[in-house]
Design a protein around this nucleic acid. Structure first.
Length: 116
DNA sequence: GTCTTGACGTTTA
DNA sequence: CTAAACGCCAAGA
């Protein structure tokens, strides 16, 4: 095989997508949780950047990924700013003022629940 | 090649 | 309590 050193960075994105896809319906997680699960808790920005590139992947439930405050910061990046909020409520999650209600209850920690 | 921005999070003032 | 700065890494201009 030909060395694929250039694709090394892509691996990080794949890991983020893999975790996001494993998020069960009705649950949500934060960028920091994913970053922490990947071992780069301080690089939470990269998770968000990976989400920005989620268009490379077929289906990524990015609406289940929010910031630490449970605020829908990335809603504006969807097809429509309301898509994220609608999808969340559709799964049984209440969203008020772009903020998830009982975020701690719906929170899904990959390191704790996925534990892969 | 350098500078700015960015779907974050934590710490300090 | 709120507001602002820093840190982290990557991509775009």
């Amino acid at each position: 095989m030909i060395s694929r050193l250039s694709d090394k960075s892509k691996d990080f994105f794949e890991q983020v997508y893999a975790v996001v896809k494993e998020i069960p319906p009705g649950r949500v997680t934060s960028y920091g949780a994913i970053a922490n699960y990947l071992g780069s808790k301080q690089s939470s920005r990269m998770v968000g950047w990976a989400m920005n590139a989620c268009h490379n992947q077929p289906e990524i439930p990015a609406h289940r990924v929010v910031n630490r405050n449970g605020l829908l910061t990335g809603k504006m990046h969807f097809v429509t700013p309301q898509t994220m909020e609608i999808l969340l409520e559709k799964e049984g999650i209440s969203v008020i003022s772009d903020q998830i209600v009982d975020f701690n209850v719906h929170f899904w920690d990959p390191e704790k629940e996925l534990k892969i």
